[in-house]
Design a binder for these strands. Structure first.
Length: 312
DNA sequence: CCCCTCACCTGATCGC
DNA sequence: TGCGATCAGGTGAGGG
């Protein structure tokens, strides 16, 4: 369940080790961890947009990935929402980036060449850094909802380059270019329940189930409130709550709810101790003492205080 | 266009 | 002790 703070901790941890480094070798242990990687195809008529991964397509995918990633010169890692990417900086490699999404349980681990294997390593990159020497970047992912990929960079309206798979992702609330007014207006235009709107990455990115519940608790909004019934003031409060909870989680190194989320050194963050709603079913609300309730919303579990977060 | 449901995965846990 | 069912959740395809 890595969300914005967890992905940002990983991005920042990776930065000193990968910026200016070169990929010297790569190994794909499980091609299912490449589901976002679209092989460059010639005129073989195969297409390459299939979503079901046949054995043949899987082999094509991992061969293509290994071939193209080997030798790449890496720049500074960037992030939007839960996606992160490392642009390739050499003229010949320009226009593409190594894209990563951690999904539910993905980890990017920085290891020395001779370090023992971690569990669930799916893809391994050997990199050489001018000052840090030889390192391994291991992509481990128990549940395989995450993936690595090579993706082409495309220009946004402002000229900045982002991976093609990130173009539909909204900016996140910590992005200076986030448009508060547009967010408030869009929430109020929609009939969908506000919890589902928070999870919609095309509206606001970086929010997952944990921080959605925390922001709703902080702004005293019931998760089933339709967007159209959220006042301008409440929507602004919700946005402020999101920013506040993201910043606090970031300061504590992220939330580790179940041992899956760790930084690049395999260490857990501390924010789980500061949660007010998520995972606190039956425990007293930190504001009013009422027992926290769990209800299904949009196919996911929502945790709320039935007294502080009244449904209107 | 908008909204909702489901498939994709593994491992921990629960009920029998 | 074992075994099947259930649950967790981010994303995107597909249906209504």
């Amino acid at each position: 369940m890595p969300e914005l703070p967890e992905v940002e901790v990983v991005r920042a941890g990776l930065a000193p080790a990968v910026t200016g480094a070169r990929v010297v070798a790569a190994e794909v242990l499980d091609p299912r961890a490449l589901k976002r990687h679209v092989p460059l195809v010639g005129d073989d008529g195969l297409g390459g947009h299939g979503t079901t991964l046949t054995l043949e397509a899987g082999a094509l995918r991992d061969d293509d990935f290994v071939r193209r990633v080997t030798g790449l010169a890496l720049g500074a890692p960037l992030r939007r929402g839960k996606f992160m990417w490392i642009p390739c900086v050499e003229p010949g490699d320009g226009g593409q980036a190594l894209l990563a999404h951690l999904g539910m349980s993905g980890q990017l681990l920085l290891r020395s060449h001779e370090a023992p294997d971690d569990r669930h390593v799916r893809i391994r990159l050997w990199v050489e850094h001018p000052t840090h020497g030889e390192l391994r970047i291991d992509f481990a992912d128990q549940r395989l909802f995450g993936s690595l990929a090579l993706d082409r960079l495309v220009p946004e309206e402002n000229g900045a380059l982002i991976p093609s798979q990130v173009t539909h992702i909204a900016r996140d609330p910590l992005d200076l270019a986030f448009d508060d007014g547009a967010f408030v207006a869009e929430v109020r235009r929609r009939s969908t329940v506000v919890k589902a709107l928070l999870l919609d990455q095309t509206l606001v990115s970086g929010v997952g189930n944990i921080y959605a519940d925390e922001a709703l608790w902080r702004s005293r909004l019931h998760p089933l409130t339709p967007g159209s019934r959220v006042s301008v003031r409440k929507a602004a409060e919700l946005l402020a709550a999101l920013r506040d909870v993201f910043e606090r989680a970031l300061a504590e190194g992220g939330t580790s709810f179940d041992a899956q989320y760790v930084n690049v050194n395999g260490q857990a963050g501390y924010f789980a101790h500061s949660l007010n709603a998520y995972g606190r079913t039956g425990e007293p609300c930190h504001r009013c003492g009422t027992s926290i309730k769990r209800i299904p919303v949009a196919g996911r579990s929502s945790h709320l205080c039935p007294r502080c977060q009244r449904r209107r």
